[in-house]
Protein backbone atom coordinates (compact mmCIF):
# COMPACT_ATOMS: atom_id res chain seq x y z
CA UNK A 1 0.00 0.00 0.00
CA UNK A 2 1.34 3.41 -0.94
CA UNK A 3 1.69 5.84 1.93
CA UNK A 4 2.27 9.55 2.29
CA UNK A 5 4.26 9.69 5.54
CA UNK A 6 5.66 13.17 4.91
CA UNK A 7 2.28 14.76 4.21
CA UNK A 8 1.26 14.63 7.86
CA UNK A 9 3.12 17.19 9.89
CA UNK A 10 2.81 20.66 11.19
CA UNK A 11 6.09 22.38 10.41
CA UNK A 12 6.44 25.87 8.95
CA UNK A 13 6.86 24.33 5.51
CA UNK A 14 3.67 22.25 5.85
CA UNK A 15 1.75 25.46 6.46
CA UNK A 16 3.11 27.41 3.49
CA UNK A 17 0.68 27.75 0.58
CA UNK A 18 1.23 24.66 -1.63
CA UNK A 19 1.29 26.82 -4.78
CA UNK A 20 4.25 28.79 -3.45
CA UNK A 21 6.01 25.55 -2.50
CA UNK A 22 5.48 24.05 -5.94
CA UNK A 23 6.73 27.20 -7.68
CA UNK A 24 9.78 27.41 -5.41
CA UNK A 25 10.60 23.71 -5.80
CA UNK A 26 10.32 23.94 -9.58
CA UNK A 27 12.62 26.95 -9.95
CA UNK A 28 15.09 25.58 -7.41
CA UNK A 29 15.24 22.13 -9.07
CA UNK A 30 15.80 23.60 -12.53
CA UNK A 31 18.64 25.83 -11.29
CA UNK A 32 20.31 22.96 -9.43
CA UNK A 33 19.93 20.64 -12.41
CA UNK A 34 21.60 23.19 -14.69
CA UNK A 35 24.49 23.98 -12.33
CA UNK A 36 27.86 22.37 -12.98
CA UNK A 37 30.33 23.73 -10.45
CA UNK A 38 31.04 22.15 -7.11
CA UNK A 39 30.70 25.24 -4.88
CA UNK A 40 27.21 25.73 -6.28
CA UNK A 41 26.25 22.09 -5.88
CA UNK A 42 27.62 21.87 -2.35
CA UNK A 43 25.66 24.99 -1.40
CA UNK A 44 22.55 23.46 -2.93
CA UNK A 45 22.96 20.28 -0.87
CA UNK A 46 23.32 22.47 2.21
CA UNK A 47 20.22 24.48 1.33
CA UNK A 48 18.22 21.30 0.74
CA UNK A 49 19.34 19.92 4.09
CA UNK A 50 18.14 23.13 5.71
CA UNK A 51 14.73 22.65 4.03
CA UNK A 52 14.54 19.07 5.35
CA UNK A 53 15.25 20.38 8.86
CA UNK A 54 12.62 23.09 8.47
CA UNK A 55 10.05 20.48 7.38
CA UNK A 56 10.91 18.38 10.47
CA UNK A 57 10.83 15.14 8.52
CA UNK A 58 11.82 11.92 10.26
CA UNK A 59 15.52 11.48 9.43
CA UNK A 60 15.08 7.72 9.09
CA UNK A 61 12.46 8.03 6.34
CA UNK A 62 14.58 10.62 4.53
CA UNK A 63 17.67 8.41 4.64
CA UNK A 64 15.73 5.38 3.35
CA UNK A 65 14.57 7.35 0.34
CA UNK A 66 18.03 8.73 -0.32
CA UNK A 67 19.49 5.21 -0.21
CA UNK A 68 17.06 4.09 -2.90
CA UNK A 69 18.06 6.91 -5.22
CA UNK A 70 21.75 6.58 -4.45
CA UNK A 71 21.71 2.92 -5.38
CA UNK A 72 21.09 4.23 -8.89
CA UNK A 73 23.88 6.78 -8.67
CA UNK A 74 26.14 3.98 -7.44
CA UNK A 75 25.52 2.32 -10.77
CA UNK A 76 26.68 5.54 -12.48
CA UNK A 77 29.83 5.54 -10.34
CA UNK A 78 30.57 2.04 -11.63
CA UNK A 79 29.96 2.84 -15.27
CA UNK A 80 30.78 6.49 -16.01
CA UNK A 81 34.41 6.72 -14.73
CA UNK A 82 35.33 3.71 -16.83
CA UNK A 83 33.65 4.70 -20.06
CA UNK A 84 33.94 8.50 -20.25
CA UNK A 85 36.89 9.32 -22.51
CA UNK A 86 39.40 12.01 -21.51
CA UNK A 87 42.39 12.37 -19.22
CA UNK A 88 43.14 9.30 -17.14
CA UNK A 89 42.97 9.79 -13.37
CA UNK A 90 44.11 6.37 -12.17
CA UNK A 91 45.05 3.19 -14.01
CA UNK A 92 44.33 -0.14 -12.37
CA UNK A 93 45.79 -2.85 -14.52
CA UNK A 94 43.95 -2.87 -17.84
CA UNK A 95 41.25 -0.49 -16.50
CA UNK A 96 41.59 3.27 -16.79
CA UNK A 97 39.50 5.52 -14.60
CA UNK A 98 38.80 8.76 -16.42
CA UNK A 99 38.86 12.13 -14.75
CA UNK A 100 35.82 13.59 -16.49
CA UNK A 101 33.77 10.49 -15.65
CA UNK A 102 34.53 10.92 -11.96
CA UNK A 103 33.51 14.58 -12.10
CA UNK A 104 30.33 13.76 -13.95
CA UNK A 105 29.38 11.09 -11.39
CA UNK A 106 30.03 13.47 -8.51
CA UNK A 107 27.93 16.18 -10.15
CA UNK A 108 25.00 13.85 -10.74
CA UNK A 109 25.18 12.54 -7.17
CA UNK A 110 25.14 16.00 -5.62
CA UNK A 111 22.42 17.27 -7.96
CA UNK A 112 20.09 14.34 -7.49
CA UNK A 113 20.44 14.40 -3.71
CA UNK A 114 19.92 18.16 -3.50
CA UNK A 115 16.83 18.05 -5.74
CA UNK A 116 15.39 14.97 -4.05
CA UNK A 117 15.74 16.48 -0.59
CA UNK A 118 14.16 19.74 -1.72
CA UNK A 119 11.22 17.84 -3.23
CA UNK A 120 10.81 15.80 -0.06
CA UNK A 121 10.71 18.96 2.02
CA UNK A 122 8.52 21.03 -0.30
CA UNK A 123 6.33 18.68 -2.36
CA UNK A 124 6.08 15.43 -0.38
CA UNK A 125 4.83 17.48 2.55
CA UNK A 126 1.45 17.87 0.85
CA UNK A 127 -1.04 15.12 0.01
CA UNK A 128 -1.45 14.25 -3.62
CA UNK A 129 -4.94 15.70 -3.69
CA UNK A 130 -3.56 19.02 -2.43
CA UNK A 131 -0.84 18.81 -5.05
CA UNK A 132 -3.49 18.26 -7.72
CA UNK A 133 -5.60 21.19 -6.58
CA UNK A 134 -2.56 23.44 -6.33
CA UNK A 135 -1.42 22.50 -9.84
CA UNK A 136 -4.94 23.25 -11.00
CA UNK A 137 -4.72 26.71 -9.45
CA UNK A 138 -1.34 27.21 -11.11
CA UNK A 139 -3.25 26.79 -14.40
CA UNK A 140 -1.94 23.41 -15.37
CA UNK A 141 -4.43 21.92 -17.88
CA UNK A 142 -7.47 20.29 -16.22
CA UNK A 143 -6.93 17.06 -18.09
CA UNK A 144 -3.43 16.52 -16.75
CA UNK A 145 -4.44 17.34 -13.19
CA UNK A 146 -7.40 14.98 -13.26
CA UNK A 147 -5.42 12.25 -14.93
CA UNK A 148 -3.03 12.55 -12.00
CA UNK A 149 -5.76 12.51 -9.36
CA UNK A 150 -7.74 9.67 -10.95
CA UNK A 151 -4.60 7.58 -11.39
CA UNK A 152 -3.79 8.10 -7.75
CA UNK A 153 -7.34 7.24 -6.67
CA UNK A 154 -7.59 4.02 -8.67
CA UNK A 155 -4.05 2.74 -8.36
CA UNK A 156 -5.11 1.24 -5.02
CA UNK A 157 -8.18 -0.41 -6.48
CA UNK A 158 -6.14 -1.81 -9.36
CA UNK A 159 -3.47 -3.00 -6.93
CA UNK A 160 -6.16 -4.84 -4.94
CA UNK A 161 -7.46 -6.47 -8.10
CA UNK A 162 -3.93 -7.52 -8.99
CA UNK A 163 -3.47 -9.04 -5.53
CA UNK A 164 -6.78 -10.88 -5.92
CA UNK A 165 -5.70 -12.34 -9.25
CA UNK A 166 -2.30 -13.30 -7.86
CA UNK A 167 -3.91 -15.00 -4.87
CA UNK A 168 -6.29 -16.84 -7.15
CA UNK A 169 -3.27 -18.17 -9.02
CA UNK A 170 -1.28 -18.95 -5.87
CA UNK A 171 -4.00 -20.89 -4.06
CA UNK A 172 -4.08 -23.21 -7.03
CA UNK A 173 -0.41 -23.92 -6.65
CA UNK A 174 1.07 -21.40 -9.07
CA UNK A 175 4.77 -20.89 -8.40
CA UNK A 176 6.62 -18.49 -10.70
CA UNK A 177 9.58 -19.98 -12.46
CA UNK A 178 11.53 -19.47 -15.66
CA UNK A 179 9.21 -21.29 -18.00
CA UNK A 180 6.54 -20.71 -20.57
CA UNK A 181 3.75 -21.56 -18.13
CA UNK A 182 4.86 -18.71 -15.84
CA UNK A 183 5.06 -16.19 -18.66
CA UNK A 184 1.67 -17.25 -19.93
CA UNK A 185 0.11 -16.97 -16.47
CA UNK A 186 1.57 -13.51 -15.94
CA UNK A 187 0.35 -12.46 -19.36
CA UNK A 188 -3.15 -13.66 -18.47
CA UNK A 189 -3.05 -11.81 -15.17
CA UNK A 190 -1.86 -8.57 -16.74
CA UNK A 191 -4.39 -8.95 -19.55
CA UNK A 192 -7.18 -9.56 -17.06
CA UNK A 193 -6.03 -6.53 -15.08
CA UNK A 194 -6.39 -4.38 -18.21
CA UNK A 195 -9.85 -5.76 -18.91
CA UNK A 196 -10.97 -5.19 -15.35
CA UNK A 197 -9.51 -1.69 -15.27
CA UNK A 198 -11.31 -0.82 -18.49
CA UNK A 199 -14.60 -2.13 -17.10
CA UNK A 200 -13.97 -0.23 -13.89
CA UNK A 201 -13.32 2.98 -15.83
CA UNK A 202 -16.60 2.44 -17.66
CA UNK A 203 -18.54 2.04 -14.41
CA UNK A 204 -16.85 5.05 -12.80
CA UNK A 205 -17.74 7.15 -15.83
CA UNK A 206 -21.34 5.97 -15.64
CA UNK A 207 -21.49 6.83 -11.95
CA UNK A 208 -20.15 10.28 -12.78
CA UNK A 209 -22.80 10.74 -15.48
CA UNK A 210 -25.46 9.82 -12.93
CA UNK A 211 -24.29 12.69 -10.80
CA UNK A 212 -24.59 15.18 -13.61
CA UNK A 213 -20.97 15.19 -14.82
CA UNK A 214 -20.55 17.65 -17.69
CA UNK A 215 -16.85 17.24 -18.45
CA UNK A 216 -15.94 19.87 -15.95
CA UNK A 217 -14.24 19.39 -12.61
CA UNK A 218 -14.40 21.75 -9.70
CA UNK A 219 -11.73 22.47 -7.16
CA UNK A 220 -12.86 23.08 -3.59
CA UNK A 221 -9.47 23.82 -2.10
CA UNK A 222 -8.97 27.31 -0.73
CA UNK A 223 -5.46 28.68 -0.91
CA UNK A 224 -4.23 31.92 0.57
CA UNK A 225 -1.01 33.76 0.18
CA UNK A 226 -0.02 35.79 3.22
CA UNK A 227 3.07 37.15 4.92
CA UNK A 228 4.60 33.72 5.62
CA UNK A 229 4.29 32.82 1.95
CA UNK A 230 6.08 35.96 0.77
CA UNK A 231 8.77 35.48 3.40
CA UNK A 232 9.31 31.91 2.22
CA UNK A 233 9.21 33.00 -1.42
CA UNK A 234 11.80 35.69 -0.79
CA UNK A 235 14.07 33.27 1.09
CA UNK A 236 13.87 30.75 -1.72
CA UNK A 237 14.47 33.53 -4.23
CA UNK A 238 17.61 34.62 -2.38
CA UNK A 239 18.83 31.00 -2.23
CA UNK A 240 18.34 30.61 -5.96
CA UNK A 241 20.12 33.93 -6.63
CA UNK A 242 23.07 32.79 -4.52
CA UNK A 243 23.27 29.56 -6.53
CA UNK A 244 23.18 31.47 -9.80
CA UNK A 245 25.83 33.91 -8.52
CA UNK A 246 28.16 31.07 -7.45
CA UNK A 247 27.71 29.42 -10.82
CA UNK A 248 28.38 32.67 -12.67
CA UNK A 249 31.46 33.36 -10.53
CA UNK A 250 32.99 30.03 -11.56
CA UNK A 251 31.98 30.37 -15.16
CA UNK A 252 33.83 33.71 -15.35
CA UNK A 253 37.12 32.14 -14.23
Amino acid sequence: MLQEPFAVGNSILHRIDPRMRIAAATVYSVIVALSRHFPTLATAVGASLALIMLAKLRPRDVVIRLIIVNSFTLLLWLVLPLTFQGSVAISIGPLSVYHSGLIMSAQITLKSNAILMALMALIATMTLSTLGSALNRLHLPDKIVHLLLMTYRYIFVIEQEFQRLMRAAQIRGFRPGTNLHTYKTYAYIVGMLFVRSALRADRVYKAMLCRGFKRKFYCLHQFRTGKEEWLFGTAMGVAVMVLIYLEWLKAGV
Binding site: L128, G132, L149, M150, R153, Y154, R200, R203, V204, A207
Partner: peptide, 10 residues
Amino acid sequence: DPDDQLFSPT
Protein backbone atom coordinates in the same frame (compact mmCIF):
# COMPACT_ATOMS: atom_id res chain seq x y z
CA ASP B 1 -19.50 -1.13 -5.73
CA PRO B 2 -18.77 2.09 -3.78
CA ASP B 3 -15.34 2.23 -5.42
CA ASP B 4 -17.11 2.98 -8.69
CA GLN B 5 -18.92 5.88 -7.13
CA LEU B 6 -16.19 7.52 -5.06
CA PHE B 7 -13.55 8.85 -7.39
CA SER B 8 -12.48 12.08 -5.66
CA PRO B 9 -9.51 12.17 -3.33
CA THR B 10 -11.49 13.41 -0.34
